[in-house]
């Protein structure tokens, strides 16, 4: 039995200790936002926050988050409404297919937590490890800068 906090709620789950966090979130805990992209920590689609740190959930065994706090895309919403950052992504229409965006938002949230006023190039550097195939990059950067500006 592994216990941790998911989006501010305590959860307890009986799954194999080596199961990837991503699989448990998606298949056992009904999380939609977190996506499988590569299973190799290469693309960032599966990013979640663990104790505030951006983490690739595909390469994290569930046992590693025992007792920790996990936040997914769903967990960023506030009272059922999109967070400032999520709203900025909506306002900037910062997606084409939108599959990578969950990881982008998580990674950007981690950046903004550390640096609330990043420059264009700081945003890009922070997101370089997250891959987008549709070419929504500049929109995504604009969305993060917009969220920063709107504080």
């Amino acid at each position: 039995m592994i216990a941790f906090k998911l989006n501010d709620k305590n959860v307890q789950i009986d799954v194999p200790a080596t199961a990837p966090l991503l699989a448990v979130l998606s298949n056992d805990l009904g999380v939609n936002g977190t996506k499988f992209g590569c299973g190799k920590s290469q693309c960032g689609a599966c990013a979640v926050l663990v104790d505030g740190d951006p983490v690739r959930s595909c390469a994290t065994q569930i046992s590693a988050v025992s007792g920790r706090s996990v936040v997914t895309l769903e967990g960023l919403t506030q009272n059922g409404k999109p967070s400032k950052l999520q709203q900025a992504f909506i306002d900037e229409q910062a997606a084409q297919c939108g599959y990578c965006v969950s990881g982008m938002i998580i990674q950007a949230q981690a950046l903004l937590d550390r640096n609330p006023n990043p420059s264009d190039s700081e945003v890009r550097t922070a997101l370089n490890g997250n891959l987008c195939r549709c070419g929504a990059h500049n929109r995504i950067v604009r969305a993060v800068l917009r969220a920063a500006k709107e504080g």
Binding site: S26, K35, Q87, A95
Partner: peptide, 19 residues
């Protein structure tokens, strides 16, 4: 775009999250 809001908050959007 009508499909975008759900994609930004973890709503139901993709086949990948159907269970």
């Amino acid at each position: 775009r009508i499909d975008i809001p759900a994609k930004m908050v973890g709503g139901a959007a993709f086949i990948h999250e159907m269970r």
